[in-house]
C-alpha cells in the first residue's frame, strides 16, 4: 500500500500538517500489512492499567494476606449468626411454654387454636387425616383415640412434633414421624394447642 506524506520520520522532528484523507502509518510492515500510528484513547489505557494493578492488589489482599474475609468466611459467619438467632428464638418460645400454659391458656385461646388448625390442615392431614383418625390407623397413630403412645405431657408432644418422634423408637408401621421444625416453634406450639383442644379429656390432670 502506498504511503505518502507520512511524518513518522524520527530524525526530522518537524510535523507536516495532516491533510484530509491522509493516514499516518507506521514504518514496519508485516506481509504487506501496516499499522496506523494511532494511540488508544487514554481513558481506555488508564482503565486497562488500573485493572491490572487492581488485580494484583486484590489477589494479595484476599488470597495471600487474608486481611479481608473471603466470601466463604463471611458467608459462614452469616449462616452462624442466623443459626444463633434461630436457637435464641426457639429458646425464647420454649421458655414461655410448659404443660400448664399449654392446657390452661393456649388451648383455651380460640385464635391460637384456629391458627393451629390451619397448620394441621396444611401439614398433618396427609398422614393423620382431617378427622384426626389417621385413615383408620393406616398411615399414622390416630390422634383422637385417647392413646398417647410416647407421652401424654403437652411439652413432650410439642417436642415430638418439633424434632420428630424419638430416634430410638421403632416408629409406627416401621416409620417414625419426621421433624417439623421447619414450620418454626410458634406454628408447632399452635398445632400442639389444637390437638389438646380436640382431646380435652386426656389432659384433665393438667387442668387448674
Amino acid at each position: 500500500m502506498e504511503n505518502n506524506n507520512t511524518n513518522t520520520d524520527k530524525e526530522n522532528k518537524e510535523v507536516t500538517p495532516i491533510k484530509k484523507g491522509e493516514v499516518v502509518l507506521r514504518e514496519h510492515s508485516f506481509d504487506g500489512i501496516q499499522e496506523y500510528d494511532q494511540r488508544m484513547p487514554n481513558w481506555w489505557l488508564t482503565i486497562l492499567w488500573a485493572g491490572i494493578i487492581f488485580f494484583f492488589i486484590y489477589y494479595v489482599v484476599y488470597y495471600t494476606l487474608g486481611t479481608v474475609p473471603t466470601s466463604k468466611e463471611s458467608m459462614d459467619a452469616r449462616v452462624e449468626a442466623i443459626e444463633q438467632l434461630r436457637k435464641d428464638a426457639l429458646q425464647k418460645t420454649l421458655d414461655s411454654l410448659d404443660d400448664d400454659i399449654f392446657v390452661n391458656k393456649l388451648s383455651m385461646d380460640a385464635e391460637f387454636v384456629a391458627a393451629g388448625e390451619e397448620v394441621y390442615m396444611g401439614s398433618c392431614v396427609a398422614c393423620h387425616g382431617a378427622d384426626l383418625k389417621s385413615n383408620g390407623g393406616a398411615t399414622a397413630r390416630p390422634l383422637d383415640d385417647g392413646v398417647w403412645h410416647y407421652s401424654d405431657k403437652p411439652m413432650d408432644i410439642f417436642t415430638f412434633i418439633l424434632k420428630g418422634t424419638p430416634a430410638d423408637s421403632t416408629g409406627y408401621k416401621m416409620m417414625r414421624m419426621p421433624p417439623w421444625e421447619q414450620l418454626g416453634p410458634d406454628k408447632v406450639a399452635q398445632v400442639t394447642a389444637y390437638l389438646i383442644s380436640k382431646n380435652k379429656k386426656d389432659f384433665e390432670k393438667f387442668k387448674k
Binding site: 484523507g21 491522509e22 493516514v23 494511540r39 484513547p41 487514554n42 481513558w43
Partner: peptide, 19 residues
Amino acid sequence: KKEPNLDSVTTINEDGSKL
C-alpha cells in the same frame, strides 16, 4: 486539528487524548 476522514476517529487525538 484535523478534518474528518474515513481512517481515523475524529474525537480521538493522535496522542490518545479526547478531542
